[in-house]
């Protein structure tokens, strides 16, 4: 069983790693308007990550602030799900990742907003509005790519097939947590299925369910992501920025 620190850290790391990936799109998006939209979403995730990391640091009680937690831990100490650390791929992969992530974060933050922990409730209340926007944005694009051209349909279906197995980890039961992720699955399935149907896409049938992120056992990608993110901070121990 995990305590509130691990739970909060998991949410924080999801948001932080998602922000780091989304920000990679800056100056590279398919259209300039979309560059701005992706940065907005990255900023939302980063904002949530900072609040959650700060709170996690307080729960831990070891004097670590948001930066100590973000820049001072190795990949084995990160608690994010695998989905967010996977590379961006093409725009279809990024939209598939964002659809799945936001369809999970929205009911999660919504439930959190009503939980007994006041700090988590406040963070959930703020973040759920942002998640609703992320879900809206990704749904819009998944529909356009799924039901756009032959090429976009092929890419979008491939992206969904590639990302789908990573959703199972999101809903691993944790009855002691402020919100048990297992309870969020029906909501997630309903939302995602509706979007995929409208986008003329199918849900892949697979039994493969990679996991381990919540225990610090990640894909090979996370270590590279952190090496880049942490390089400057770690090169100047104790410096203020």
């Amino acid at each position: 069983m995990k305590g509130p620190f691990d739970f909060t850290l998991g949410l924080a790391d999801d948001a932080l790693v998602a922000a780091q990936r989304l920000a990679e799109w800056s100056t590279r998006a398919p259209e300039m308007e979309e560059d701005i939209a992706l940065s907005n979403i990255a900023l939302d995730q980063l904002g949530a990550a900072r609040l959650l990391l700060t709170y996690a640091g307080e729960l831990e009680g070891a004097g670590r602030d948001e930066d100590a937690l973000a820049f001072g831990r190795d990949d084995r100490e990160f608690r994010n799900c695998l989905l967010v650390e996977l590379p961006n791929g093409d725009f279809a992969v990024t939209m598939a990742k964002l659809l799945l992530l936001s369809a999970y974060q929205l009911p999660l933050y919504t439930a959190l907003a009503a939980c007994a922990d006041e700090r988590l409730a406040a963070i959930g209340g703020k973040a759920r509005k942002e998640s609703a926007y992320h879900l809206d944005h990704s749904s819009l694009w998944v529909k356009r790519l799924g039901d756009g051209t032959e090429e976009s349909h092929r890419r979008m279906q491939a992206a969904v097939d590639e990302m789908w197995p990573y959703t199972h980890e999101l809903f691993a039961a944790d009855p002691a947590a402020p919100v048990d992720p297992a309870t969020l699955r029906p909501d997630f399935d309903a939302v995602v299925s509706a979007v995929l149907d409208e986008a003329t896409l199918t849900r892949p049938e697979t039994t493969w369910a990679p996991a381990g992120g919540r225990d610090g056992v990640h894909t090979e990608h996370l270590s590279f992501l952190l090496a880049e993110m942490q390089v400057l901070h770690r090169a100047h121990p104790g410096a203020r920025w």
Binding site: I36, H137, L140
Partner: peptide, 10 residues
């Protein structure tokens, strides 16, 4: 739809 979203962001 996209115009409305883009307008919000821009």
């Amino acid at each position: 739809e996209l115009a409305l979203r883009n307008a919000r962001d821009l």
